[in-house]
């Protein structure tokens, strides 16, 4: 069995990622794939897609700032190298989701204004809590915040979006599948590296537990804003109708047929799945999960 830190090599990253599942892709999807006409032609659907994609850009910008910021706080060479590959992964995620905004018709000159207009304030708060730890060069808290909480959330959000897009929007589904593959490495690093560091620094637990509770609260508040938005509900229903579906257009995720769910039910399924995973992941690394308030 190899030493787990040895696995964090640029060589492995090259073979599995750029020379593996990303080979031949264009901004993460297959060359020539386009956003569906339905989405581009309908102003409400297009705005909803822009709004959703802005949240992804905001999350990925935070991950880019955090992973790059943590490189010089890392206690060992292998972690620094891993975080260098993660930095490139996150920069790619920022780029491909930004490209999606352009594909949806956002002009380059309007990009920052569109992001400011649509960025969910609760998601911005979520990111600020993490970046505060990174600014203090707090490696243990920074990695838990980024690779367990932020990525744990992103992982499931991407999986759910992938399930809903697989048939309705193959271009976006392909873009997401490469990011999901990247996230597997990122969550793996979070658990593996921190599992041992927490044992060495038990005094850090209360602060990390507080961070987890606060970040979880802002995550739930973001979901509440997104799913309880009446336009989103309209989006889901319209997409379903237009796809001629009774379920044919959306996939299954966590054993549920997403087409059968109302937005509130989707919100609950997503939130419960993520919080359940947080609990298990944190328990594995020796951190006690703190239940956040429900917004």
């Amino acid at each position: 069995m190899r030493d787990f830190l040895d696995a964090y090599s640029i060589q492995y990253w090259l073979e599995s990622c750029p020379q593996g599942y990303l080979e031949g892709t264009e901004y993460g999807h297959r060359p020539g794939e386009k956003e569906p006409e339905l989405l581009l032609d309908d102003p409400t659907l297009r705005e909803q897609a822009i709004s959703t994609t802005v949240q992804l850009v905001v999350g990925e910008r935070c991950a880019l700032a955090a992973s790059s910021g943590l490189i010089n706080a890392a206690p060992d060479e292998a972690s620094r190298r891993f975080l260098a590959t993660q930095t490139l992964d996150e920069a790619r995620h920022v780029e491909i989701f930004t490209q999606r905004l352009y594909d949806l018709g956002v002009k380059k000159s309007e990009l920052e204004d569109v992001i400011d207009a649509f960025a969910n304030p609760n998601l911005v708060k979520f990111a600020e809590i993490l970046l505060e730890k990174v600014d203090k060069k707090d490696f243990v808290a920074g990695v838990v915040g980024q690779n367990v909480i932020l990525e744990g959330m992103a992982f499931h959000v991407f999986e759910m979006m992938h399930a809903t897009s697989e048939k309705l929007n193959p271009k976006f589904a392909h873009t997401l599948s490469g990011t999901i593959a990247d996230e597997r490495r990122h969550v793996g690093f979070g658990e593996n590296r921190i599992g041992s560091l927490i044992q060495a620094h038990p005094e850090k637990k209360p602060e990390i537990e507080r961070m987890q509770r606060d970040m979880s609260y802002y995550m739930l508040a973001t979901f509440a804003d997104r799913f309880r938005d009446t336009a989103s509900r309209e989006e889901v229903q319209r997409m379903r109708r237009e796809a001629g579906s009774d379920g044919a257009g959306s996939g299954t995720w966590q054993g549920a047929n997403l087409a059968d769910l109302e937005p509130e039910e989707m919100e609950r399924l997503l939130a419960d799945t993520i919080l359940g995973e947080f609990k298990k992941r944190l328990a594995r690394i020796g951190i006690e999960y703190q239940t956040p308030a429900r917004p």
Partner: peptide
């Protein structure tokens, strides 16, 4: 049995 997950590099 010991198993290695190459996708997330976990033992």
């Amino acid at each position: 049995d010991r198993i290695y997950c190459m996708a997330c590099m976990t033992r």
